[in-house]
């Protein structure tokens, strides 16, 4: 359980970093990247939590998120791309 605590705290530290970047920007790309990163970290956290509690219930989440995060990021990147400053 100490492992879990450590792991989650570490992930939280990472999440804080991404969250900071999401809030501060400055560019949209930054925010997109950090949102993507946040989602990955959420999955990481959920998996880590699953690992320590031996629950397999949330594993599907990882698969779906991998797919869906890709969609979100690429959609933002592509449709914002065309706009020049």
């Amino acid at each position: 359980m100490i492992g879990l605590a450590i792991a989650l705290s570490l992930i939280a530290v990472g999440g804080a970093g991404f969250l900071y970047r999401l809030l501060v920007g400055p560019s949209l790309a930054d925010r997109v990247v950090s949102l993507d990163g946040l989602l990955t970290l959420i999955v990481t956290a959920v998996l880590a939590w699953g690992a320590f509690t031996r629950t397999g219930t949330y594993l599907t989440l990882g698969v779906v998120v991998a797919l869906v995060a890709f969609l979100g990021t690429s959609a933002f990147a592509r449709f914002v791309e065309g706009r020049r400053r």
Partner: peptide, 23 residues
């Protein structure tokens, strides 16, 4: 029996289609 169901299934298909759209 596991997480999932019609909604999520449909949404994942939707996501897949959206990906094709994005591309």
């Amino acid at each position: 029996n596991r997480p999932g169901g019609g909604f999520v299934g449909g949404l994942v298909v939707g996501a897949a289609i959206s990906l094709r759209y994005v591309a």
